[in-house]
Design a protein around this nucleic acid. Sequence first.
DNA 1: ACCTGAACACCGTTCAAGT
DNA 2: ACCTGAACACCGTTCAAGT
Lengths: 224, 224
Amino acid sequence: MATVREPKHRERLNRESLAACALQIADSEGLEAVTIRRLATENAVTPMALYWHFADKDALFDGIAERMYAEVNLPEPAGLPWHEELRAALVAVLAALRAHPLVADVAPPRIMKSEPGLALAECVIGLLRTGGFSPAQAAQIGTFLLCSIVTLVTREPGQDQRLDPEAQDEALRGKRAQLESMNPKKYPNLLDSSEFFLFCPSEDVYFSQGIDFLVAGVTGIQPR
Amino acid sequence: MATVREPKHRERLNRESLAACALQIADSEGLEAVTIRRLATENAVTPMALYWHFADKDALFDGIAERMYAEVNLPEPAGLPWHEELRAALVAVLAALRAHPLVADVAPPRIMKSEPGLALAECVIGLLRTGGFSPAQAAQIGTFLLCSIVTLVTREPGQDQRLDPEAQDEALRGKRAQLESMNPKKYPNLLDSSEFFLFCPSEDVYFSQGIDFLVAGVTGIQPR
DNA sequence: ACCTGAACACCGTTCAAGT
DNA sequence: ACCTGAACACCGTTCAAGT
């Protein structure tokens, strides 16, 4: 008899692959879809098995955040002015987080909880110190910049790929109907802009203007 | 016999007071504490009673957002340059949301779902149009500005008043220990700034620099 | 119009036990 | 060291029924 391979017994679980699986679920179906039980079935295991690898659900999210930070390719120092180096770092973070619009929200509060997060933080804080900002300002501005990149990614108009195309069209029609039914005397400017709350004419323009805004903000305030 | 008042039968429920109650719970214990069942017991009613007043939990959150937007006191147009008027509007939003650091996150996606939200949006979009921005840019920048104010409020260092003082001190000690145990060769700048991720030297300075940053960002980019 | 009762299909988590 | 079984205390929501 030829050896007909039985379906391999599950490979051993481990933090990294579990976190990767959770990230995949979140990317395709949203963060709410990531449940201990779902992740367990996906890995052919009882829910309680996960508690060997993660203390609780929050620790699982730490793992997800770490994976996203690991995808940030920080640029080598290039001897440019500090605000140019800062821009490059922000672009690198943006590039990584754009892949995870449904999950990016978990990243900011967890930046100090993994090596790749710490590396990013050290880099940005260092650049801000070079720009003349105090330790307090650097901490505050650095935090704000990271949250802002997340905002750009998570609130990009019309990018909620969570639902199937039909349901998405349906939702879009609903919102459009609501916006277009507004009183034009009362909300003239809102009506002019209405379609751009639902639709992004150019992702590249949107994101590059976002980065421009952030760099302008940083360079526009007084270091103290 | 003197009429000893029986505890009044519950007053009739209504959207507004339910939303107010939910907001109060969220302010003191965080958004996760707002559950249909908790809100029901708080109002001496079965969980299902709430479904008469709100289609689902999301609609309850719409109500919470509306209440917060209603607290924004938009300044009268004062004939100042558009960016000064914009600053005043941002300050007004900040003032309102500062009262709700644990809840402010629900506001941005719901700005178009209530009259006070729409009034704020119309105001900000109008000012951005006056500043020369296109309808598309105005929509994107306006959204970003609102999210940024929320970021300032929700990520203010050391302001998580959710737990009792002892538990909060405990959590703080844990984080501080972690930060101070970092390798000083590897994370020198991070270590310099570490205490300012946990503690805000001055709320007023923090928020006014935040507003300065945003105004600098807006005035620093090219209207197209 | 407004609310209840019973039921369903989910959650995260603990704890003791198995291999 | 790694995983299971059973149980607990929660969720949001539906649907039919009561007043």
